[in-house]
Design a protein around this nucleic acid. Sequence first.
DNA 1: TATGAATGAGTATTCATTCAT
DNA 2: GATGAATGAATACTCATTCAT
Lengths: 208, 208, 208, 208
Amino acid sequence: MKPEERKKLILASAKKLFSRNGYYQTQISDIIKDAGIARGTIYQYFANKEDVFVTLAEEYYSLWEESISLAAADLDLDVVNPVNYFRHRIKRTLFFFSQDKDLCNIALRVGLGLPGEMASVIKRFEERIIRLLIGDLKLGIDNGHVRRDLNVELTANLLTGALLSTAYHFYSRDAGKAKPLDINKTTEEITAVFAPGIFVKPYQPKGK
Amino acid sequence: MKPEERKKLILASAKKLFSRNGYYQTQISDIIKDAGIARGTIYQYFANKEDVFVTLAEEYYSLWEESISLAAADLDLDVVNPVNYFRHRIKRTLFFFSQDKDLCNIALRVGLGLPGEMASVIKRFEERIIRLLIGDLKLGIDNGHVRRDLNVELTANLLTGALLSTAYHFYSRDAGKAKPLDINKTTEEITAVFAPGIFVKPYQPKGK
Amino acid sequence: MKPEERKKLILASAKKLFSRNGYYQTQISDIIKDAGIARGTIYQYFANKEDVFVTLAEEYYSLWEESISLAAADLDLDVVNPVNYFRHRIKRTLFFFSQDKDLCNIALRVGLGLPGEMASVIKRFEERIIRLLIGDLKLGIDNGHVRRDLNVELTANLLTGALLSTAYHFYSRDAGKAKPLDINKTTEEITAVFAPGIFVKPYQPKGK
Amino acid sequence: MKPEERKKLILASAKKLFSRNGYYQTQISDIIKDAGIARGTIYQYFANKEDVFVTLAEEYYSLWEESISLAAADLDLDVVNPVNYFRHRIKRTLFFFSQDKDLCNIALRVGLGLPGEMASVIKRFEERIIRLLIGDLKLGIDNGHVRRDLNVELTANLLTGALLSTAYHFYSRDAGKAKPLDINKTTEEITAVFAPGIFVKPYQPKGK
DNA sequence: TATGAATGAGTATTCATTCAT
DNA sequence: GATGAATGAATACTCATTCAT
């Protein structure tokens, strides 16, 4: 097996176990047993347990950045109206988290309250989306689409909290009871809740 | 010193340390050193480290329940209009979390991703507020104040996520950079974002 | 309550608990709870946990000595024949241990393998009975009742081991399955096993 | 060093220390210091301290079983008379315990009065020999060699108690004062004490 | 004398990490 | 590179004993 494959194998096991049991409840022993490798091998790919976690989180963060870029690239900004852009952001975010229950769990629960660098990596997710939304909203204000008196920072926070909380509740590993949401429909419903309070023009449900 | 006082002393030290360093980074040694008691003493009041955490969380949850009851008792429901009621909920929640940075940190970050009973206690906060909001929204629909087509469960989730995220960002121990918000003003701003998408009648900013 | 009574109360609880759970599995907490006294009180009557055990064992040993004396006093040595004397020793021993399951357990199991003074106190039981039997056998040899070539020390050991083992198996707290023996009948059976190998004259079953 | 050797090393240290100081007076620290290994190493071979003890006892019990089998295999049952068979049992038992002072101490003293599984393992020794003797005696009765009216269970108990007590007194680590017995001579003496009370035919000293 | 809260030395056990093979 | 036996610092928890009230 090639080194890069083995590294992925380890990360896959770590992801599964961190997600299910949390960082401290997951032992190196568990990971190597699940990955089917020897105790020493994991230290050939990672400096220590924390490094496994951070690597995992950073890879996910990269995917996330990529997904966000796609979100922007996806749209023809000239023809798209502001609400549609907003709609798209929401959809992309939900879609991203819905793809991997385990990573969703790690980024949205397990990673919170961890010490040192691990916390920082995880915090970046939230900070990144907040910064993004702040940019969106400021642009909207400049273009006259968004209410001038909107508290941009607070609103970005509200939106982020709302989106991540929703993602966790409906797409995480723990989301046993709640049935996975239909992303298109949910996007529309979230837009329906937020758009009227944010945008200047009366909000029009999609397709009308 | 009376037993009850000493117990409070221990909980105070634990709260401070759990909040700053997290559950696993906080050693029993740290707590007893901070509380100025002997190693054995803490085990006269608590079965084990987990029990310290759970007791802390449960006391906080009781305050929280009490605060919620007050929120309702506060208002003269006959004269109050639906949006004002909503406004009040938000204000109360923000006010509650703003009162204790440490507990805010514990309930909103440190406690997440913990194993066993500790997780359940912490989850209750979120579940409780979601259930409350679901009740509010359903009532609003029955009374004709809230949009009939609103996805009640989703919206309650959005609101809860938004509120708790905001509380954490502006009132927690980690909220170093962000200056503490003025609660009245913030309440108004949050209401301004959510009300138009939730209520039937056009939203009227307070005092107009 | 008078001091002496309270001391007995404590010893009674200790006896019960040591017998059931062993020395190390019995905590001071268990004893005081069972005795219904405060933690500090036990230290007004005993120097420490070991002292409780030793006191218990020594009281029992005194009873034991007393019982042995009675055994001798009981008999009219002039008219009694040697085998009857032997018979009497056995009966007395069995009777003594059959009277208190808990003490039987402590002297015959719990006390063995304990460190320091506790072991010595317990060992005395065995040593005492061995010395006694050695005396008996030597006297028997001098009087021509016992085989001259008998290894006295070894035989005393065999007899003691046999008697104490039997006492434990049939009278201790753990002797759940075995039904308590009828002492007269058992004495006769034991005599029937040992007497022929020890005494010079052919052994005569009692009553013949 | 091979794993199996190291395990034996640990067991050797544990045996020595348990035998001298008892189970509770022996610390894990003592064992690892004596074995010259690191603290964690012992837990690679044993689940916990109790497991060390139980493993020790069980290995000893296996040797014991093996020794018993040999005892039977040793004899040409056709030519051997019943008393010789009995003689052989006694000799084998004494021989077995005389071989290892430490194990003798553990099985006959230290192990008694221990809690849980440890007690059960130790109890097996006694139970096994009792069952064996019961079998022997019953067979003897069927063949007409042993007294029909003998209380088989009681006699097996007497014999076991006598043998184990003798083994402990003369071969254990604590048997400082008593000089180790010559097994052949002792076997003959024990036979001389028991045989006349058990067998039908007049007992003949060996070699006459 | 009785109490019971406080004490802290003592101890088993865990688990990430290392390193010789 | 891979292995897995060995390591030992770290840590929670116990429980006999003390002593101020």
